[in-house]
Simulated scan of single mutants.
Amino acid sequence: MRFSLRFVASLLCLGTIPVLTGAKGDGCAAGSKSPAPDVAGDWAVTYEDEIGVEVKIGGAVYTSKIGVQGGEVTIDHEGKPLKFDLDCSRPEIVCPAEAWPEEVAIEQKNTEYEHQMIVHLPKQSCSGTMRAAKPEECGANTINPDCEDVCDGEITVTDQEAFGVIGEEGDSFRLYLGGGIASNGVNCALLGWSVADADLVTEGEGTETWVANDMKNGVVTVAYAGGCLWVANVDADPDLEAAVLGASVTFTVGFTSARAE
């Protein structure tokens, strides 16, 4: 599935994307013709040891941590335990370290728009039916705030081009990780605020040899609908189930990166 530059750039530029810690990349320079540092080439990524977890159910927010390879987190919501499992072995799940792997190759193909960058990453697509979001299931305070088309079917993952933007000042980037499709609350389509952000450490600014050699304060953010990761309790009541299906589970992990030798 391919999307227009204007569509992806508008998502990258959203100031409302919740980045919990670390860098907040400037994704608004996709159409800029000003110079940008050279980021093309191979990069080696080093991750922090833990993944931060944020679960939102209605107006309640719960936080926890799990190992970098994923795992289970249990919260107590209104006196009832709820368990969510980030199982990285599931083929439709893109875990943080998969969304931005330990080795990445970046390209800057468009010589007119140097701020645009392309990375080959695991990307999701819908193998079922796409439909327009219903008014009552999208908008502010939902898992589909921009009322994107909903995938009513299975999610598949293949290696595709992901689009990113180097900030206007050349000191940060934002990479959009989602597939531009919304979850139906049960399947595992990445939610729209799934991004990778980092600050860029550069040298030679103002010259033709302006180059980025390091990334710091990096954060990968991947988010799913609660129903995707919910380890269901057979005794759960319908109201609780409805709340879980409208919940979001966001995972963040910090990283740094340097050019691969």
Rank of each mutant, 00 (worst) to 15 (best):
235 D>P: 01
231 V>L: 12
46 T>R: 15
243 A>L: 04
36 A>R: 01
190 L>K: 04
32 S>Y: 02
59 G>E: 13
26 D>Y: 00
95 C>Y: 04
132 A>N: 03
194 S>T: 10
135 P>L: 05
8 V>Y: 04
80 K>P: 00
112 E>H: 11
242 A>G: 12
147 C>H: 03
67 G>S: 14
83 K>E: 07
57 I>S: 11
109 K>W: 10
112 E>F: 13
72 E>G: 01
56 K>F: 07
157 V>C: 11
56 K>Y: 06
161 E>D: 15
209 T>L: 12
131 R>G: 02
120 H>I: 10
1 M>A: 14
175 L>R: 06
50 E>Y: 10
103 E>C: 03
136 E>I: 08
73 V>R: 01
146 D>I: 12
216 K>F: 04
98 E>M: 14
184 N>E: 08
74 T>N: 08
80 K>I: 14
164 G>I: 05
190 L>V: 04
254 G>C: 09
85 D>R: 12
6 R>T: 13
40 A>C: 07
27 G>K: 02
38 D>M: 11
15 G>S: 15
216 K>A: 10
30 A>I: 02
28 C>W: 00
137 E>Y: 14
254 G>Y: 05
92 E>Q: 15
206 G>N: 10
186 V>C: 05
115 H>A: 10
86 L>D: 02
238 P>K: 00
41 G>H: 12
134 K>Y: 11
43 W>I: 04
84 F>A: 03
132 A>H: 01
17 I>T: 15
204 G>A: 08
257 S>R: 08
87 D>Q: 05
78 E>K: 13
124 Q>H: 07
181 I>D: 01
28 C>V: 03
221 T>Q: 12
171 D>Y: 00
114 E>F: 03
129 T>S: 13
228 C>Q: 02
170 G>E: 04
85 D>H: 15
201 V>P: 05
190 L>M: 15
94 V>Q: 06
61 V>A: 13
198 A>V: 10
12 L>G: 13
216 K>E: 13
260 A>T: 10
87 D>H: 04
217 N>K: 15
76 D>N: 15
225 A>T: 05
40 A>P: 04
91 P>M: 06
202 T>K: 10
54 E>V: 12
233 N>H: 13
240 L>Y: 05
237 D>I: 03
229 L>Q: 01
